[in-house]
């Protein structure tokens, strides 16, 4: 029997959060953490609350903190996470908890919107697609794949302290996704908006974001690229 400890908080019933313990029969299988949550919700307690959708690691709904590390519950096998038959599941750190494992992601989304995450190009569009060489397109690899799960930003102390001012790894990765796109013409405006002491420069390069990204992306490297672009712009 797997020992599972889940962070519980219902604002209508609980004065403060607590941990609740469950025992789960995994049938000896190496289930995903999401499967374990589904078993608990179906068989033991339907009030256990979490987000989930695609269950294959592409929608980014079920970012959670499992045994101290952020990740997607649906693609985290127990063998990767469980230590000594114990699994502790908590919400993503640093954001307000709405209920149990569900956090309020407004601040996270607001930072995403702040980088104007859409292609800007006011030149008249051709009748077909805008051409882009495979080499230019390759510059977007490792950037466009972000699923907005927030595992990175909520593992970043700078984002914990200033989620309203520091764009955070996820937002900056997307910022660079457009800075790096040969079709985007708003480079100057984008950079100008990032040149305050908080948006980019709260990153101290500790790479927690790289360590947890379930898609294997590297926000720290993207932030480094943004910094270089800001330097070049000032020089």
């Amino acid at each position: 029997m797997l020992q599972v400890s889940i962070y519980r908080y219902n604002p209508e019933q609980d004065a403060e959060p607590s941990m609740e313990d469950f025992e789960v029969d995994t049938g000896g299988k190496d289930l995903m953490v999401l499967d374990v949550l589904e078993l608990i919700k179906a068989q033991q307690d339907p009030t256990v609350t979490y987000r989930r959708s695609c269950r294959e690691g592409v929608c980014g709904s079920d970012g959670l903190n499992m045994n101290g590390k952020n990740g997607l519950a649906c693609i985290t096998p127990l063998s990767d996470s469980v230590k000594g038959n114990k699994l502790v599941i908590r919400p993503l750190p640093g954001l307000p908890v709405i209920r149990d494992l569900v956090v309020d992601m407004s601040l996270f989304y607001a930072q995403y919107e702040k980088v104007q995450p859409y292609l800007q190009n006011d030149t008249p569009a051709p009748a077909i697609e805008r051409l882009q060489t495979p080499e230019d397109r390759a510059k977007l690899d490792g950037l466009y794949e972000c699923i907005l799960c927030a595992c990175c930003s909520t593992s970043c102390p700078s984002f914990w302290w200033n989620p309203d001012r520091f764009v955070g790894p996820a937002g900056l990765l997307q910022s660079y996704r457009f800075l790096a796109d040969s079709r985007d013409l708003a480079t100057e405006e984008r950079l100008a908006r990032l040149d305050d002491p908080f948006s980019v420069f709260r990153c101290h390069g500790i790479q927690n974001c790289v360590n947890v990204c379930p898609k294997g992306l590297n926000p720290t490297r993207a932030i480094g690229h943004i910094r270089s672009m800001l330097l070049k712009r000032a020089a």
């Binding site: 859409y118 292609l119 009748a127 697609e129 060489t133 495979p134 397109r137």
Partner: peptide
């Protein structure tokens, strides 16, 4: 083509 103009990062051929 509209989607491409909106920024969809399609894979590309050698001709772009």
């Amino acid at each position: 083509f509209e989607l491409e103009h909106m920024g969809l990062p399609f894979s590309r051929t050698e001709e772009g």
